[in-house]
Simulated scan of single mutants.
Amino acid sequence: MSPEEREALARLLPSPGEPVLPNDRHDLLQEHLMRELAQDVTATSDVSATQETGTAPGPREPARRRRFALIAVPLATAAAVAAVAVLGMAGSDTPPTDQEAVDLLNRIATVAAEKKAVTVRDDQYVYISTQGSEKVEDVQNSGTQTFRRANWTAVNGKRPGLARITRLSGPALPGHDVPKGTPEDLTLYSDPNVTTYRELEALPTDPDALLKKIYADTKDDGSINRGQALERIGEMLADAKLLPELNAALYRAAAKIPGVSVVRNAKDFAGRPGIGLSFKDRDDRDTWVFDKKSLNYLGSDEVAVLGAGVVDKVGETPGT
């Protein structure tokens, strides 16, 4: 084998900085290479004999062409297997990034940041109106209930609020046999799992710092399972509409989480059409829905946000 051929073969092997083949594939490749080198010696001897005696070595192909053809096949196969393995591992940990979806999230963030901030007092209440559904599992009456709900939550979380729930369809929850279409008022106590307006207000508005805090608060490592962080961001979007800087930061933080894709024709739970964003790492893979023109957040395909604002008393709605 000439020095040029040895150098060509060396270039086909992975360099130290490239992904390393599995041990079994490496051993197999090395064994095959040594076998081919041995055959090459024999072929070279045959060629020498031909030159000396003028006798052809038999039906064997020319040594150089056969050697490179045989070595190239297992090397290419091994490289392909290694590439598939690397891509498979990366795909299981880090979903691909859809640049169109990232750009859309950043445009939504820009629109959100331009909203006018509202001055809020501790003695006021945050009003959020939603429409969603809930599974009812009862021995006599089971199914899915569709409801409309209005929450009045104290700005500082230190006073009881009010939840007004209206069943639109489906079975009633056990112990809540209120006729369909009739509002049922329930006292809304402070929930440690719910972030109050003041707590939202205290969150960082730098997207990187915000995402780092969300990862820490949800014990989400941010590499393999990003579902918990996305769940937390989704839970804050309705209330964050009242805090433009935080609202924008939440969308920009979400844009840093891989696996987002655009759903061009989406609908929120109330049936309002819009453009959607879906995240691979959400367990339920729900879709955030935005108005196509204004890019205002409408809710998701599981919960529609019908209204949000700040009022002085429970039972009031913004503008009344």
Rank of each mutant, 00 (worst) to 15 (best):
E199P: 01
I257K: 07
L237F: 10
K212H: 11
S261K: 14
A202E: 08
P244F: 10
A238W: 03
R232G: 02
R252C: 02
V262I: 11
T196L: 00
V260T: 10
L211P: 06
V262L: 12
K212E: 12
D206K: 08
I257P: 05
I214N: 06
E231W: 13
P207G: 07
A253S: 13
I214D: 00
R198I: 06
D239M: 12
R226C: 05
A248V: 07
A216E: 15
T196R: 02
P204A: 10
N225W: 10
E199I: 01
N225I: 12
L250W: 05
P244T: 13
A255T: 06
N225Y: 11
K219F: 14
R226P: 03
E245T: 10
A209L: 05
K212V: 05
A229N: 10
P244D: 14
R226H: 09
L250S: 06
L246D: 04
L200V: 08
T205A: 01
F269W: 08
N247K: 11
N225L: 10
K241W: 15
D217N: 07
Y215N: 15
R264H: 15
D217I: 00
E199S: 07
Y197H: 06
K212A: 13
E201Y: 08
I214L: 13
K267F: 14
K267G: 00
R232S: 06
A254W: 03
L211N: 04
K241L: 13
A266L: 10
G234E: 01
D206F: 09
P244N: 12
E245M: 09
R252N: 05
D217V: 00
N247T: 04
F269R: 13
A209D: 14
D217E: 12
K219Q: 11
R198E: 08
G234F: 04
Y251I: 03
D208P: 01
E199G: 00
L230D: 00
D208T: 13
D217A: 05
I224M: 08
R264N: 14
R198L: 09
G259N: 13
A240F: 08
E235Y: 10
A238F: 02
T218L: 04
R232C: 03
A254L: 05
S223C: 12
F269G: 00
Y215G: 02
I233E: 01
P258K: 07
R232M: 08
T205I: 03
A255D: 00
A229R: 04
K219S: 10
T218I: 01
I214V: 15
Y197L: 01
A254R: 09
I257T: 12
A266G: 13
